[in-house]
Amino acid sequence: MTEKDFIPGVYPQKVEKGQITYSSPSNIALVKYWGKKENQIPANPSVSFTLEACATTTTVTFYELGSAGSHFSFDLFFEGRPNEDFKPKIQTFFKRITVYLPFLKSYHLKIETANSFPHSSGIASSASGMSALALCLLEIERELNPEMTQEYFTRKASFLARLGSGSACRSIEGDLVQWGAHKETEGSSDLFGIKYPYKVHNVFNSYHDTILLVDKGKKQVSSTIGHGLMHDHPFAAQRFQQAHNNLSKLRSVFEKGDLDTFIEIVESEALTLHAMMMTSQPSFVLMKPNTLEVIQKIRDFREKSGTHVCFTLDAGANVHVLYPENEKEKVYAFVKNELLVYCENQQHICDRIGYGAKKLG
């Protein structure tokens, strides 16, 4: 599919007003997307676990204006309060998608959104937030065009979410989602995420992710700026090739349930992401001292216990502790007894693999 496939014709129905609610999850990348081209096109492909507990719930209440205006008409509420800080990002998003949702300037929108986790702290709040909003907007379009198929709806939702936040395109479905063209993955695309199309061993279908809130503060650098630093990065080409190679290796890993190689790839990807930030110009150190303490503790415990616990990181200090269902009691006891001391007020989130966004109303 191309961008043109997402431009609608004349809508067969008329809708005066309504209200739509979606809950959309965050996701945690196993192979990281870092660096992008124009129009939110990824510099390398990625694959992620969709989460369940870490989610954004968004309600869009809309009514038709007397005539289409030259500007977008919307109010934004975050966790019950008006939020002007988020409005420029929504404005930019609307400008990017108006060619694909031409009804936008014909309605006033009241957008109410809330997260189940701390905003802007290294958990992908933009992924869950922009995917939830994209789904609500596309649901309005589905009311205007009831003949839209579910397959097209899902693909276009991912396409639109990507234009708000790249990783948001991986939050529409679950449990494993790949985004970015990869020569060995049939159906892969830079324009939208797809459900991982190959065989996946049962061990990966019920993975746990305990998120350690090492630092709940706002990130030192936004993901947008971080991606931009890859343009002239001295190691960018090697990094992009590494991502392609790791995706190729994961096909066998997912099929066989090879947890040892899974750990090697996932931890390498996490540390490479931070290494790219530490070697950019300007450089940023996003990990905190407690992040490093947790990483070392996890590696020591894995060696002593024979479990398959591992870590990954997003662009922040918090640590995602990944482990299979059949080891949950032993690993969570370790987390509780030895790792929570490194979290702010021992705060953490117990999450697990999820299966994508849900329409709530």
Score class of each variant (00 low, 15 high):
6 F>N: 06
6 F>A: 09
8 P>S: 06
15 V>A: 13
23 S>C: 07
29 A>V: 03
30 L>W: 00
33 Y>Q: 04
33 Y>R: 02
37 K>P: 04
37 K>E: 14
39 N>V: 00
41 I>A: 03
44 N>P: 09
47 V>Q: 00
53 A>Y: 03
54 C>V: 12
63 Y>K: 14
63 Y>C: 10
66 G>I: 11
66 G>N: 14
69 G>A: 08
69 G>I: 03
71 H>F: 14
74 F>P: 04
80 G>A: 05
81 R>D: 06
90 I>V: 15
90 I>N: 03
93 F>Y: 15
97 I>N: 04
98 T>V: 12
98 T>P: 00
98 T>G: 00
99 V>Q: 10
101 L>R: 06
103 F>Y: 15
107 Y>P: 13
110 K>C: 01
113 T>C: 06
113 T>I: 01
115 N>H: 11
116 S>W: 08
123 I>F: 09
124 A>Q: 03
124 A>W: 01
128 S>E: 06
128 S>W: 13
130 M>C: 09
131 S>W: 03
145 N>D: 08
148 M>L: 14
153 F>S: 05
153 F>M: 07
156 K>I: 02
160 L>N: 00
165 S>C: 10
167 S>Y: 04
168 A>R: 05
170 R>F: 08
175 D>L: 14
176 L>Y: 00
177 V>R: 00
181 A>G: 01
185 T>C: 13
194 I>P: 15
199 K>Q: 14
201 H>V: 07
204 F>P: 02
206 S>C: 05
209 D>K: 06
213 L>N: 10
216 K>H: 00
216 K>D: 01
219 K>Q: 10
220 Q>R: 15
222 S>T: 13
222 S>A: 12
228 G>W: 11
228 G>F: 10
230 M>Y: 02
233 H>E: 08
236 A>K: 15
237 A>P: 00
241 Q>A: 15
246 N>S: 12
247 L>A: 11
248 S>C: 09
253 V>A: 00
255 E>D: 14
264 E>F: 02
268 S>L: 08
275 A>Q: 14
276 M>P: 08
277 M>A: 14
277 M>Y: 14
283 S>L: 11
284 F>G: 07
285 V>S: 12
289 P>N: 07
295 I>V: 12
300 D>W: 01
302 R>A: 10
302 R>W: 04
310 C>E: 04
312 T>D: 11
319 V>C: 08
320 H>C: 04
322 L>S: 06
332 Y>M: 04
335 V>A: 07
340 L>C: 14
347 Q>I: 01
349 I>Q: 01
349 I>S: 06
355 Y>C: 03
358 K>Q: 14
